[in-house]
Simulated scan of single mutants.
Amino acid sequence: MGHRSRQARVADIRDIAMSMPHVTELPGSQGKPVFQVGGRSFVFFRNPRPDAVDPDTGERYPDVVVFWTPSEADKQALIQDDDLPFFTTPHFDGHLSVLLRASRVGELSLRELTEIIQDAWLSRASGARARNWLAAQGFDEST
Rank of each mutant, 00 (worst) to 15 (best):
M1A: 12
G2F: 11
H3E: 14
S5K: 06
S5V: 00
Q7K: 14
Q7E: 13
A8H: 04
V10S: 10
V10H: 09
A11T: 14
A11G: 04
A11D: 15
D12L: 07
D12V: 08
I13Q: 01
A17C: 14
A17H: 07
M20Q: 09
P21K: 02
H22K: 12
V23I: 08
V23P: 08
V23R: 03
T24Y: 01
T24P: 02
E25V: 06
L26I: 12
P27L: 08
P27C: 02
P27Y: 07
P27A: 14
G28K: 10
Q30N: 10
G31C: 06
K32V: 02
V37F: 01
R40N: 12
F44A: 04
R46P: 00
R46Y: 01
P48N: 05
P48T: 02
R49W: 05
A52S: 12
V53K: 15
V53A: 10
D54P: 03
P55L: 00
P55S: 01
P55H: 00
P55T: 01
P55M: 00
G58W: 08
R60G: 00
Y61L: 07
Y61T: 00
V64Y: 03
V65F: 01
V66P: 01
T69A: 13
T69N: 07
K75A: 12
K75G: 11
Q76V: 15
A77H: 11
L78E: 12
Q80N: 14
D82T: 13
D83R: 10
D83E: 13
T88I: 07
T88R: 11
T88E: 15
T89I: 04
D93V: 06
G94F: 09
G94Y: 08
S97I: 00
L100K: 03
L100F: 09
R101C: 10
R101I: 10
R101V: 07
A102I: 02
S103P: 01
R104W: 10
R104F: 09
V105R: 02
E107H: 13
L108K: 06
S109L: 02
R111K: 11
E112H: 05
E115V: 12
I116Y: 01
D119L: 10
A120Q: 08
A120F: 07
W121G: 05
W121A: 06
R124E: 09
G127C: 00
A128K: 14
A130F: 07
Q137H: 08
Q137W: 03
Q137K: 15
G138T: 09
G138F: 07
E141C: 03
S142V: 11
